[in-house]
């Protein structure tokens, strides 16, 4: 398995606070990683660091051997669900996904619809996002992350507002993504009904990796 993500003594200081401290990690293709920790422990920041949304104060991060730093490009193949994305309220789910897909323009309408169906959201639903429930918005967030079949999948608290049936669908999706060869990183503070066989579990406290089970 190929190393896709590599942290080297990564430290991030924001407003004089160390939000990530001396992180050294490797993440490989086809593996499922769980980030666990309490609220505010630094899980989301670690995901943001991989996504290139923040840069290191000291140390480095490499994605596919390319260093993520100021003014660099974002990792080329990335699916991201960080916190609760606010989609455009006036569009239907399919319209939002089409719009997002048009930026990279590497998937077809059929791919989008197939991804929607995987997560139990109907492509024919004419309701606007403004009328969506919290759970439906969360499904849409997951769909937009997986639909382009990215090499790296970063999911921050993906279970928020999902019902039992959708959690089962989500488990199936994650299994498929791992088998496809993607690096899947899921940040969770509570597993609930989500039962997965993780390859590695990383516990973060106060921005520091305190446990790393392999």
């Amino acid at each position: 398995m190929e190393t896709i993500i590599r942290f080297e003594e990564y430290t991030k200081i924001l407003k004089k606070t160390e939000i990530l401290k001396d992180i050294s990690l490797e993440m490989k293709s086809g593996k499922l990683y769980k980030l666990k920790g309490t609220n505010g422990s630094g899980k989301t920041m670690l995901l943001r660091a991989i996504a290139g949304l923040i840069y290191p104060t000291t140390g480095a991060i490499y994605v596919n051997d390319v260093e993520i730093k100021k003014n660099c490009t974002y990792p080329a193949s990335l699916g991201v669900l960080i916190e609760n994305p606010s989609f455009w309220r006036e569009y239907t789910g399919l319209e939002v996904l089409r719009y997002l897909a048009s930026i990279k323009n590497n998937i077809t309408d059929e791919d989008i619809k197939a991804s929607m169906e995987k997560m139990g959201l109907s492509p024919d639903d004419k309701r606007k996002i403004g009328k969506y429930s919290l759970g439906m918005k969360q499904k849409l967030g997951i769909i937009q992350a997986i639909m382009e079949k990215p090499d790296i999948l970063l999911l921050d608290e993906p279970l928020n507002a999902l019902d039992s049936e959708t959690i089962r669908l989500f488990q199936k999706v994650i299994t498929e993504e791992r088998e496809r060869g993607a690096v899947v990183v899921i940040a969770l503070h509570n597993d609930g009904e989500f039962e997965m066989d993780y390859d590695e579990v990383i516990k973060i406290e106060n921005g520091k990796v305190v446990e790393h089970e392999k």
Binding site: G52, L53, N71, T73, L78, F87, L100, K104
Partner: peptide, 18 residues
């Protein structure tokens, strides 16, 4: 507002940051 509230979705799909 649209850019800010959807920055993860938009930025991470952009080919170039600049």
């Amino acid at each position: 507002d649209d850019i800010l509230s959807n920055q993860e979705l938009l930025f991470t799909r952009a080919k170039k940051r600049k």
